[in-house]
């Protein structure tokens, strides 16, 4: 058995997180009243899964490009009132039928792609993770992006987010290892600054839970990527003084740090997948390092401000030698 999918994650284009009520309003045009709402561990609004019909090729690694017909499911999620995800997924099934059947046959089992030509599971999974290369290939990226764009289109958003962020994409493939209990494995790869892939192997009956797992993984990867980028910008920017630089970290403290809860909403039977990802690449280890760096920056700025206050009131020793680092100084001259 094989399930393929893709999740795109980005920042909702609003200045502050939305209340659960507002999230429901934003999602309503996408799925009417069929919105699922979860309060814990984080607030989460999810639209109903909708099918999108496709008749296309799969980008197999062997270039066999097997033909599939069926539907891909998509849904949109708003997490913590502030992050938005677009998700697309489908099972790939070989029914033995090699003729294209009437469309009603395919709509009767949504989220299923039926193979019209022979295909090898491993070959299709690897090809899919490498990505579509031809216009007639299955394009889950476009469907996931659309699911995200549809949320961002909402007229209820003020379009003044606290910072510029890049969307990240997680492309995933789940290979069923059969009905006997087998050890679960997950291989996570960073392909480019915005693209990651994960290949998961689990027993067949656990496969449906993997969609939620991948969404959770994508969310935490976005948090990690965004906060790391913010820290880098803070350290390299030449446009600000000490305080202004630290001020750049504010959105992370205000809006992102509390969202880190890896695996909290993942099916219990799949927690071993998160555990293996925590060993390698070690998401929480990386996150803790970033959070420590942010706190250190803030502490240093506080010390700097205290020192300057003391200097100003004459209650302390003279400032250390070397270039003074005035936190509120004028902007340095531009490089010509």
């Amino acid at each position: 058995m094989l399930t393929l999918g893709e999740v795109h994650t980005g920042l909702l284009q609003n200045s502050v997180p939305l209340s659960a009520e507002r999230v429901a309003k934003v999602l309503r045009p996408l799925s009417g009243d069929q919105i699922q709402h979860y309060e814990r561990p984080l607030t989460r609004g999810v639209t109903a899964d909708r099918p999108r019909g496709v008749d296309c090729r799969l980008p197999a690694a062997s270039k066999a490009n097997p033909h599939v017909v069926g539907t891909v499911m998509w849904r949109s999620t708003v997490v913590g009132g502030h992050l938005v995800q677009g998700s697309a997924y489908a099972d790939v099934v070989d029914t033995g039928e090699k003729r294209r059947l009437p469309w009603s046959h395919y709509t009767a089992s949504p989220g299923r792609l039926e193979l019209l030509t022979r295909a090898d599971t491993e070959d299709v999974a690897q090809g899919y993770l490498r990505g579509a290369t031809r216009p007639d290939h299955l394009d889950t990226a476009a469907i996931a992006a659309h699911a995200l764009d549809r949320v961002q289109r909402s007229a209820l958003l003020d379009r003044a987010p606290s910072l510029k962020t890049r969307r990240t994409r997680l492309r995933w493939a789940v290979i069923g290892t059969g009905t006997m209990p087998q050890p679960t494995t997950a291989t996570f790869r960073v392909v480019s600054p915005d693209l990651r892939t994960v290949e998961v192997r689990v027993a067949d009956d656990l496969m449906p839970g993997v969609i939620g797992l991948c969404e959770d993984l994508a969310l935490h990867d976005w948090l990690l990527t965004t906060v790391a980028r913010l820290l880098d910008n803070t350290l390299t920017t030449r446009r600000y003084g000490h305080v202004q630089r630290t001020e750049l970290l504010r959105p992370a403290v205000d809006y992102f740090l509390h969202l880190w809860m890896p695996g909290a909403r993942v099916d219990e039977s799949l927690t071993s997948v998160w555990e293996s990802l925590e060993r390698r690449p070690g998401f929480t280890r990386q996150w803790d390092t970033s959070v420590a760096r942010i706190r250190d920056q803030i502490n240093l700025t506080t010390i700097e401000l205290l020192r300057l206050t003391e200097c100003a009131t004459g209650t302390s020793a003279p400032a250390p030698r070397g270039r003074p680092r005035l936190p509120l100084g004028p902007r340095p001259p531009r490089r010509r």
Binding site: L11, D149, R153, R167
Partner: peptide, 12 residues
């Protein structure tokens, strides 16, 4: 419009 607003998430 989707493309422009998507890019606006990332670029100033």
């Amino acid at each position: 419009a989707d493309l422009l607003s998507h890019l606006n998430e990332e670029f100033s």
